[in-house]
């Protein structure tokens, strides 16, 4: 089930509340709030990816969207958690894609023609990259230094690597797209932690009322972002 504002995953709900003064004022129960805070601080346990796959997602997404002077990277933003949670949604099962055969390949500009939904692309893609990495570098992807991880990602993006059934480029684009979604989607879905993605971009989130800023002659918008659940940066 996808989280929504009315039906959030419990953990994100707790995280959202912890940032609001009304929660602290209203609860008045020290032990309960402490327990919730402890739960919120626990590391996320993936439900789709196994431990190796999850380490891969964490490592690769951080290279795609690294921490730097601009601000947090994929790891700090919770991108891996976001992608794992997305794997439990209709999107990951390809429920809005036309998935009837025959599956015939054609020119790239006629679009995606593989029989795989996102879940398949991750399962097959990660296994393929791990196999390729062990063959060429003698270690798993997550255990390589960033320079070599970047080499591998560059090769995937450039289309020079075929990962068994999945073209490297297809897997790369899937991972890049979901990584960026995780960096910039509402925190409701587990990524964009602390609104770090939006803060970097200067996107005000769910404010959705700019009557006073239609034209301020190029001055920056003054307010920091707010999330759908009311969390502020």
């Amino acid at each position: 089930m996808e989280p929504t504002l009315n039906r959030p995953l419990r953990r994100s709900f707790v995280k959202g509340l912890l940032g609001t003064t009304s929660f602290w004022m209203a609860s008045g129960n020290a032990s309960w709030t402490a327990a919730l805070a402890a739960e919120a601080a626990q590391p996320y346990l993936p439900t789709f990816f196994d431990a190796m796959e999850y380490r891969f997602i964490e490592a690769a997404s951080e290279r795609l969207f690294p921490v730097d002077d601009n601000g947090p990277g994929a790891k700090a933003l919770g991108v891996a958690e976001f992608i794992d949670r997305q794997m439990q949604t209709p999107y990951a099962r390809g429920e809005n894609w036309y998935m009837s055969g025959p599956f015939q390949q054609g020119p790239a500009n006629l679009g995606y023609q593989l029989p795989f939904v996102p879940r398949d692309l991750y399962r097959k893609g990660i296994a393929g990259v791990e196999h390729y990495t062990r063959q060429h570098y003698g270690k798993g992807f997550a255990d390589l230094p960033p320079v070599q991880q970047d080499e591998i990602l560059t090769a995937l993006e450039g289309g020079s690597v075929q990962l068994d059934e999945v073209p490297g480029r297809v897997f790369f684009e899937q991972l890049r797209t979901n990584t960026l979604e995780g960096a910039f989607a509402d925190p409701l879905y587990g990524g964009n932690r602390g609104l770090g993605g939006w803060t970097m971009l200067g996107f005000p989130g769910a404010r959705a009322d700019f009557m006073d800023w239609v034209n301020q002659e190029g001055a920056p918008y003054p307010l920091a972002p707010v999330s759908i659940s009311g969390e502020t940066a």
């Binding site: 894609w97 036309y98 500009n109 006629l110 679009g111 023609q113």
Partner: peptide, 18 residues
């Protein structure tokens, strides 16, 4: 339901899957 697309009449049109 979707459509199939090709550029020219000598091609095989392929489904617009996404």
């Amino acid at each position: 339901s979707t459509v199939t697309i090709r550029n020219t009449m000598d091609q095989t049109a392929l489904p617009y899957r996404q």
